[in-house]
Design a protein around this nucleic acid. Structure first.
Lengths: 238, 238
DNA sequence: CGATAGTTTGACTTCTATCAAGGCATGTGG
DNA sequence: CCACATGCCTTGATAGAAGTCAAACTATCG
């Protein structure tokens, strides 16, 4: 892959600070201090793999900077399955997902905690357990959103949805960063590279987005993007 | 709907007893006794709804008999989203899924526990918390399996996969029970009713299954069903 | 200034949705 | 007990959307 590495220089500002990452929601300041002592900051270079074996994989993780990609291995081929953007979390892995590969896109800064550390801290901050459950549920919700996309949407709706989601998840910056190839966008959306390209281009021609580079998307009309995504309420006709 | 109610009379035997439902895995006999005291058995009639509001919804549930259907509400229409078969579990709901509807297909027997009860018992049997997490992860795995189906499979593979999964999940009985219409199978697989019908018929003509009734499927060649599902290892050609 | 990896565009094919008609069970009323 | 109404399933003809194949284009890097 030859995608330009993620960089803040001259680009969008770091995603608008979220209230509080879901994992740490509802914690008091002294509790946060305790928690900080258990979590460690890991750094990864572009394309470096995050460990997935039970011994070394992070039990939970909070992505501070950069992007992560998850590739699923299925009958021979690898396919891009999911992207993680700053502010989002890694939840503990089920048995199936351990087969896949998780790797950095650009320079990645990850706040992680192992299982024992989590158990220890959860004794003192029981709220953490609840948050962890909510986290996994959120991933489930996300998966079901993709299910709707893949099951019922047309190619143009899929592409609009995907851009719209990524835009929102990156904190609605002026310029959205697509850190993967058209082929990989297609793998996530269940489309071919050519169809993705055609639909992205169509959005550009419609004036909804601008494409200074294939991987840089300036969102001109977020409202149109949303209504083209098929998630909007069906328009009343009068 | 006019589907014949679920019945064991003259049908397949109750699903081969699983080792132990995932929720109770690794519990000792005395622990199981404690647990049994906290869980209650709820009965539902055909088409009856399982409560979903936070106050009355089961926090976790284990389906003992019958089937459950989960319908998602999205921009106007309702669509069948998922089926639950005996031995499978209901996990606590994320915010999004509360919008949907969960209802009984046939006579349903459900072993449930509310949130407070779960918290209490989890103090004494910490393993339960781990199992709960595993449960939600299993649902996530399942959702991702559907993502692959919807994203990359052809109509014939989708139908073969679906039948194959349902067959396995019902405990591989001689005669598999499809408790929903072709339209609803289509909603789950991202296909139209007509396409589902054609593909099911094609499997019948190929001798892989037999269809004494549209909702009764006798699986003649489980191996073929699996290889037609597209999940099988790609065949070596020599 | 190539060379490489990715993207775009076009022509053509294939697959599945759509529209429409008929078929088969099940349940109801005469 | 039979006719018929209903709901679902099946089958066929057709059109449209997306996949495939192939060629040209563009950015980036050495």
């Amino acid at each position: 892959m030859q995608i330009a590495p993620h960089s803040h220089a001259g680009g969008h500002p770091p995603a608008t600070r979220r209230l509080r990452p879901a994992l740490f929601q509802g914690l008091t300041t002294p509790e946060m201090r305790l928690v900080r002592r258990v979590f460690t900051e890991d750094l990864y270079d572009d394309a470096e793999a995050v460990p997935r074996d039970p011994a070394r994989a992070p039990f939970v993780g909070l992505l501070l900077d950069g992007c992560l990609r998850e590739d699923a291995v299925l009958q021979g081929g690898e396919r891009l399955f999911a992207l993680t953007f700053p502010g989002e979390t890694l939840s503990p892995l089920g048995p199936r997902r351990r087969r896949g590969r998780l790797s950095a896109i650009g320079a990645v800064q990850l706040l992680t905690c192992d299982r024992d550390g989590f158990e220890r801290i959860a004794q003192e901050v029981p709220r953490l357990r609840l948050n962890l459950l909510g986290l996994v549920q959120e991933h489930l919700t996300e998966a079901q959103r993709w299910q709707v996309l893949l099951g019922r949407k047309s190619a143009s709706e899929r592409v609009a949805s995907m851009l719209n989601w990524f835009h929102a998840r990156q904190g609605a910056p002026a310029e959205l960063h697509l850190p993967v190839t058209r082929t990989e966008l297609g793998q996530m959306a269940g489309l071919t590279m050519e169809t993705v390209s055609r639909q992205v281009r169509a959005l550009e021609k419609a004036g909804v987005i601008d494409l200074p580079l294939p991987s840089r998307v300036r969102v001109i009309d977020p409202g149109a993007l949303h209504s083209l995504s098929g998630d909007a309420q069906p328009q009343r006709l009068h």
